[in-house]
Amino acid sequence: MEGLPTKDQLIKRNIQVGQNCSFCWAGIESHEHLFFIYPFSSSIWGKVSSLCSQGGGGPTTIQSAIAWLASSACADDMLDMVPKLAFCATVHYIWWERNRRLFENKVRTHDQIVEAIRLDVSIKCAAFSISVIQNPRNQFLADKWGLRVDWKTITQKTCAWFRPPANMTVLHCDGSLTVDRASYGGIICDATGAAIMAFVGNGDNNSVLSMELYAILRGVSFCVQNSQLQVSIRSDSKLAVDILNGVVSCPWNMQTLRDRISSIFHHLQRKEIKHVWREINQPADFIASMDTGDGEVIIYPPDFPPELVELIKNDYDRKVYFRNL
Rank of each mutant, 00 (worst) to 15 (best):
G3A: 11
P5M: 06
T6R: 04
T6V: 14
K7G: 01
D8R: 10
L10I: 06
N14V: 07
V17C: 05
V17P: 11
V17A: 05
N20F: 09
N20Y: 13
F23A: 00
F23N: 04
E29K: 05
E32L: 08
E32F: 08
L34E: 00
F35I: 11
F36Q: 06
Y38T: 00
Y38K: 09
Y38R: 11
S41R: 03
S43L: 08
W45E: 09
K47S: 12
V48F: 04
V48I: 12
S50G: 08
L51F: 14
S53H: 14
Q54G: 15
G55N: 14
G58H: 07
T60K: 14
T60V: 12
Q63H: 12
A70L: 10
A70V: 10
A75P: 02
D77K: 05
M81L: 08
A86L: 03
A86F: 07
F87H: 07
F87I: 03
C88M: 13
T90K: 04
V91C: 13
W95S: 02
W96G: 03
E97G: 00
E104H: 14
N105D: 13
N105K: 11
D111L: 12
L119Q: 14
V121C: 03
I123Q: 10
A126V: 00
F128W: 05
P136G: 02
P136T: 06
R137S: 04
R137E: 03
N138P: 00
L141F: 00
R148H: 10
R148V: 09
K152N: 01
I154R: 11
T155V: 13
W161T: 02
R163N: 11
M168K: 15
C173R: 01
G175F: 06
G175V: 02
V179K: 15
D180L: 10
D180Y: 05
C189G: 03
G193T: 05
G193L: 07
A195T: 07
M197R: 10
A198L: 02
V200S: 11
N206I: 05
V208G: 04
S210T: 07
M211C: 02
M211P: 01
Y214I: 10
Y214A: 01
I216Y: 08
L217N: 11
L217D: 03
L217F: 15
G219P: 06
S221L: 05
F222Q: 12
N226G: 02
S227V: 11
S227A: 08
S227Q: 14
V231T: 05
S235M: 04
S235R: 03
S237R: 06
K238A: 09
A240F: 09
N245M: 01
N245Y: 08
N245W: 07
V247F: 09
W252V: 12
M254S: 07
T256P: 01
L257W: 04
L257Q: 05
D259M: 06
I261D: 02
S263Q: 14
S263C: 12
F265K: 13
F265L: 14
Q269A: 05
K271Q: 13
I273S: 01
I273T: 10
K274S: 11
A284N: 09
D285F: 01
S289Q: 13
G293D: 02
D294R: 13
E296F: 13
I298Q: 10
I299E: 00
Y300V: 12
P302N: 00
P302F: 04
D303Y: 13
F304T: 05
P306S: 13
V309K: 12
K313T: 04
D317E: 15
R318A: 09
K319P: 07
